[in-house]
């Protein structure tokens, strides 16, 4: 089993005719993802590598029975694209776009709370269930089928930890990059809850970073609700206060909230070992299995 995506996921790529959209559609198809349609307003009737292009998500759902979308639309139009996906009642929307205005995301977040759709991202690498399906830009070749779930804010840090696992022959059920923005759809808690309910996930890696309080909330959730063992990693121990470290959400506030220390101690208090290096995280997972 897996969480959120599998062989049955039928994907529409929003922004399929753009450079990024086209390139990653090919990569997804090559990996085995069932990409059934694309959208690009005004380009309905065309195709990309034989995949039909529609003007609207609604048509892609009606004609091709799509149940998930991946958004590769530029930031100025990404909020609108996510709204379109939410209004079409898809099961899952994965927004890759970086730089979506925060107030657009606040409005999206409000609409999201009124739907049953799951949003992952924005500003994220996407989600992969090895051997079945990937929605996003993650490099498929580093993943392997197995029993470890992974949830992370960051793309490349995910790749690092996954490669530390795969090198030891430890595969993954599903890996999710939830994104580095202040307002995101799927939180650590949402992903952890799904992993806890997946019988095939025997251990979970959670990679957090400075900024906000999501990791602290995740620690609370783990302590109260999880039997599946979790190992953690927190990036940004050396980040100075008041400086944004690349991600829009990665900042230790002037008053000292969002520090790595606070997150690490919250996780430790919840019984979660936190690695000093990504390789140490893999050590902890190996111990669990």
């Amino acid at each position: 089993m897996s969480i959120f995506v599998d062989d049955d996921t039928r994907v529409v790529v929003q922004g399929i005719t753009g450079g990024e959209g086209k390139f990653h559609t090919r990569q997804m198809v090559e990996y085995g993802t069932n990409v059934v349609a694309g959208t690009s307003p005004g380009k309905g009737g065309q195709d990309v590598d034989g995949i039909p292009v529609y003007d609207t998500v609604e048509e892609a759902v009606d004609e091709e029975d799509a149940n998930a979308s991946v958004v590769f639309v530029p930031p100025a139009f990404a909020g609108d694209a996510i709204f379109e996906a939410l209004d079409t009642d898809l099961d899952l929307v994965v927004a890759i776009t970086e730089g979506v205005p925060t107030q657009d995301m606040a409005k999206v977040n409000k609409r999201l709370s009124e739907t049953d759709t799951r949003l992952i991202g924005p500003n994220c690498p996407g989600i992969i269930t090895p051997g079945e399906s990937k929605l996003g830009i993650l490099p498929g070749n580093i993943f392997e089928e197995g029993n470890v779930g992974l949830v992370s804010r960051s793309g490349t840090l995910t790749y690092q930890v996954v490669s530390n696992l795969t090198e030891r022959g430890i595969g993954q059920t599903t890996a999710i990059g939830i994104g580095g923005d202040p307002i995101i759809g799927t939180s650590f808690v949402d992903a952890l809850e799904a992993f806890e309910n997946d019988p095939d996930t025997h251990a979970v890696v959670m990679c957090g970073e400075i900024g906000g309080e999501d990791e602290e909330q995740a620690a609370k959730f783990i302590a109260e609700n999880m039997d599946t063992p979790v190992a953690g990693f927190i990036a940004g121990r050396t980040a100075p206060p008041g400086k944004r470290m690349g991600h829009a959400g990665a900042i230790v506030s002037g008053s000292g909230t969002g520090t790595a220390e606070s997150k690490i101690s919250a996780l430790n208090d919840a019984g979660v070992p936190v690695g000093d290096t990504p390789n140490e995280v893999a050590d902890h997972i190996e111990d669990f299995l």
């Binding site: 992370s152 804010r153 960051s154 793309g155 490349t156 840090l157 995910t158 790749y159 690092q160 580095g180 990679c207 970073e209 400075i210 990693f233 990036a235 940004g236 121990r237 050396t238 980040a239 470290m245 690349g246 991600h247 990665a250 790595a260 000093d276 290096t277 990504p278």
Partner: peptide
């Protein structure tokens, strides 16, 4: 120098470590 905020932060942390 690195790619991706999380991995670059991690590289900083490891230099310190």
């Amino acid at each position: 120098i690195g790619n991706g905020a999380g991995l670059v932060m991690t590289t900083l942390d490891l230099v310190d470590y």
